[in-house]
Design a protein around this nucleic acid. Structure first.
Lengths: 198, 198
DNA sequence: GTCTATATACAGATAGAC
DNA sequence: GTCTATCTGTATATAGAC
């Protein structure tokens, strides 16, 4: 009984290590350039053993996406504790800017994954990254709506789009200050927004 | 003599066909998922023959990037014939929106290429896509400067960043209307900009 | 210059011992 | 559950006939 529990605990621990390693390595190297051996090494799990936890490489990609999605939930969950929706949005922008060094080296985890998965001709996984982005859009639109703005969806699109754009440029130019400059502009923009009268 | 010229013409024609095919296929499928056989088939050139024109796959990627860069030059060249820099910028945005269906399926050619090449750990080619984006930034900044705006570089960053962001979201959500909505906002923004007094 | 056949290398995945 | 050894497929690149 105790042994069985320990084995199970160790097993899911390994699964968790593999998931975390996948999220990290796939972000850094991309899906196509990452081998199962890379992930296994990073998770300190023998290569052959990977298949006990994930039947295919795609399942590891999916697990990595779920991990990024969970990180997003954590962030928005923390921001939800702020009372003013404008502060929540500004907190989101600040969190992005804080990640500028990572963005300069590897871009946005979800965004770069979405770009890569969209290159697939088969329909495998290519919608999954889009779903994570859509959840970010939804959360953002809710904040704009709570603020009393007339077109919350358009504002959300503008903000998330700006984030993906500045991440891509920060990465392509390898220049974290891109993130700082655009981040400051976004903060000013958020401050300037006035809810409709009435 | 005539034969030699014909051979040379055919040869460079094949090279040109390979370059064009590379630009197209690499945009659609991405670098890592594209095989030399894919490009050769699209160019109607036998696989083994590719190596006569390009020593490595990376050289084909480089040629594809140069092709995209040339397309950008064509576009900015046409826009340069407009007298008002504001009209040039609005023309740029309109050109982007016109490509929305392509963007929905494959994203921005240069942007998605940049994302993929930035995943490389070796320093091969990963700066080349960034250079193309930088040239777009420079051209755009020149227009803002000619307009008499105080911080042309920041405005350029905002515009190009917005383009890359809306391309990525259009692609990830497979929704061309993202491009239309953001494009209209950018046009309104450009119209609203007033040069500093004096 | 053109093309076929093939060398080489390495990835994803599986079989099966422990 | 864990791990090694290996099968199988496929991609880049080359050798060399034509």
């Amino acid at each position: 009984m105790t042994n069985s529990v320990n084995r199970r605990a160790r097993a899911s621990q390994k699964r968790q290590r593999l998931t975390a390693a996948a999220a990290r390595v796939l972000h850094e190297q991309g899906v196509e350039r990452t081998t199962l051996a890379d992930i296994a090494r990073e998770a300190d799990v023998p290569v052959g053993n990977v298949y006990y936890y994930f039947k295919t490489k795609d399942e590891l990609v999916q697990a990595a996406l779920a991990e990024h999605s969970a990180h997003l939930d954590e962030l928005t969950g923390r921001l939800d504790e702020l009372t003013d929706p404008r502060d929540r949005l500004k907190g989101l922008v600040s969190a992005w800017v804080d990640q500028r060094e990572t963005a300069a080296r590897h871009g946005c985890p979800t965004g770069t994954l979405a770009v890569e998965l969209d290159k697939r001709t088969d329909g495998t996984l290519d919608a999954e990254a889009g779903a994570v982005i859509r959840r970010l859009l939804d959360w953002t639109a809710t904040q704009f709506r709570t603020l009393g703005l007339p077109t919350p969806d358009d504002h959300a699109l503008t903000l998330v789009s700006a984030y993906q754009g500045m991440s891509l440029l920060t990465n392509a130019l390898r220049d974290p200050t891109v993130m700082t400059r655009e981040g400051e502009r976004l903060l000013r923009w958020l401050d300037s927004l006035k809810p409709a009268e009435g």
